[in-house]
C-alpha cells in the first residue's frame, strides 16, 4: 500500500466501529471463565474466530489451538486495517503496528539463537505489522542471525541491527540486538509526527505508552536490584521522565513510586500504587497500567470521530481481548480458580 493518495478515515472508522462492537464483552468473559480449553475453542469457533479455529484445528489442540488462533486472528484484523487505510492514516496506523514487526524480528532471532526449528518459529510469528509474508518467509529461511540482520537491511530496523550485531558478536548475548529492535520501534513511534488538533490525542496516547514502558522498566530494574545502567533502557519521547531522572529514580523504588504518584497519571494509578507499596507485587501494577491505557483510549475517538483515535482505540481493545482470552485459557489449564483468573483480566 502506498503512502500517496488521500487519507480515508470515513471508510476505516466505519468498519472499525462495527468490528469493535463485535468484541467480547463482560457477559462473554463471565461465560469463558467457567469453561475448559476445549469449550473455549468451541465458543470461539461460534464467534469471530471461526475460520482460524477451523484452519488450525487439525494441527493443534487445547490451549495451543486457542493461542495460535488468537494470534492469527489478531494478525488478520490488523492487516485489514493497513489494507484499508491510505495516505496519512496508513502512516499513523503503521507507526503503532510496527510493534509486531519488532516482535517478529525478535522472535526469529531468538528462535535461531535457541536453534528452534522453522515451523516452531513460524507458529509464533504474528503477521500483523508492515512486513509482508515474503519478507517474513525470507527471515524464517535465514540460516543464521547474521543473515537475518542482512535481510533486514532495507527496513527501518536495518541500521540499528547492523550496529548491534557487532556487540552481539563480541558478547554472545541477545540483549544488544533486542534492545536495538525496541529502540528503533520507539524512535519511529513519534518521529516526524505531524500534530494537529485531531492527532494531538493520538500523540498523547503514544507518549503515555512510552512513559508506561519507561516506568515499567525502571520498576523492574529497581525490583531486581541488578547492576544495569537504566539509561541503556531509557526510551526517548515520553513526557514523564528524562534519562537522568530515570537513572537516579531507578536506584530508589520509593522515590520512583512517589514520582509516578505526582505525575499526571497519578490519579488513575493511585490505587495500583497503594497496592504496589503494600504488597510489593509488580504484576498488579503492570495490569493497572494496561487498564489505565485502555480506559484512556476508550474515551478517545469520541471527540474526533473521523481521525486516527477510534482506530487506535480498537487496536488496543483487540489486543486486550486477545490477552484476556489467552489468560483465561492458560489459567484454566494451570488449574487456577475463577477468582484468580478474574484478577488477571483487564476489563473495563
Amino acid at each position: 500500500m502506498s503512502t500517496a493518495g488521500g487519507s480515508n478515515p470515513e471508510y476505516v472508522t466505519a468498519r472499525v466501529r462495527a468490528r469493535r462492537s463485535a468484541l467480547y464483552g463482560d457477559e462473554e468473559y463471565r461465560k469463558l471463565i467457567r469453561m475448559g480449553p476445549a469449550e473455549i475453542a468451541r465458543f470461539m469457533e461460534e464467534s469471530d474466530y471461526e475460520s482460524e479455529i477451523n484452519a488450525l484445528g487439525s494441527r493443534h489442540s487445547g490451549v495451543d489451538l486457542i493461542e495460535y488462533a488468537l494470534n492469527r486472528n489478531l494478525a488478520k484484523q490488523f492487516d485489514d486495517l493497513l489494507r484499508w487505510a491510505d495516505g496519512r492514516l496508513y502512516d499513523l496506523i503503521a507507526r503503532y503496528l510496527r510493534k509486531f514487526d519488532a516482535w517478529n524480528v525478535k522472535t526469529v532471532i531468538r528462535g535461531l539463537y535457541s536453534e528452534a526449528d522453522r515451523d516452531a518459529i513460524a507458529d509464533d510469528l504474528i503477521r500483523a505489522g508492515e512486513f509482508d509474508d515474503q519478507l517474513l518467509d525470507q527471515l524464517l529461511d535465514a540460516p543464521s542471525i547474521e543473515d537475518v540482520v542482512d535481510r533486514l537491511s532495507g527496513t527501518i530496523f536495518g541500521p540499528g541491527l547492523a550496529e548491534a550485531y557487532e556487540d552481539y558478536e563480541d558478547t554472545g548475548v541477545l540483549v544488544p540486538l533486542e534492545n536495538a529492535v525496541d529502540r528503533t520501534y520507539y524512535d519511529h513511534l513519534l518521529e516526524g509526527l505531524v500534530v494537529d488538533e485531531a492527532t494531538q490525542q493520538y500523540r498523547e496516547f503514544l507518549e503515555a505508552e512510552i512513559d508506561f514502558r519507561n516506568a515499567r522498566n525502571a520498576l523492574r530494574l529497581a525490583q531486581s536490584g541488578a547492576d544495569i545502567d537504566p539509561a541503556d533502557y531509557y526510551i526517548d519521547g515520553g513526557s514523564l521522565f528524562s534519562a537522568s531522572e530515570l537513572a537516579t529514580l531507578a536506584q530508589n523504588r520509593d522515590e520512583l513510586v512517589s514520582a509516578i504518584r505526582e505525575s499526571k497519571y497519578g490519579d488513575e494509578l493511585s490505587e495500583a500504587l497503594d497496592e504496589l507499596e503494600a504488597i510489593d507485587s509488580l504484576i498488579g501494577f503492570e495490569r493497572a497500567l494496561d487498564a489505565v491505557l485502555l480506559k484512556y483510549t476508550d474515551a478517545l475517538g469520541h471527540v474526533f470521530p473521523l481521525s486516527i483515535t477510534p482506530i487506535a482505540s480498537y487496536i488496543l481493545a483487540k489486543e486486550r481481548e486477545v490477552d484476556n482470552i489467552r489468560a483465561i485459557a492458560r489459567g484454566r489449564e494451570a488449574g487456577l480458580s475463577e477468582e484468580q483468573i478474574e484478577q488477571e483480566l483487564v476489563i473495563l
Binding site: N8, E10, T13, A14, R15, A18, R19
Partner: peptide, 10 residues
C-alpha cells in the same frame, strides 16, 4: 466511504 465500510461489515 463510511457507508461502504459499514455495508462491508454488515
Amino acid at each position: 466511504a463510511a457507508a461502504m465500510g459499514a455495508i462491508a461489515e454488515d
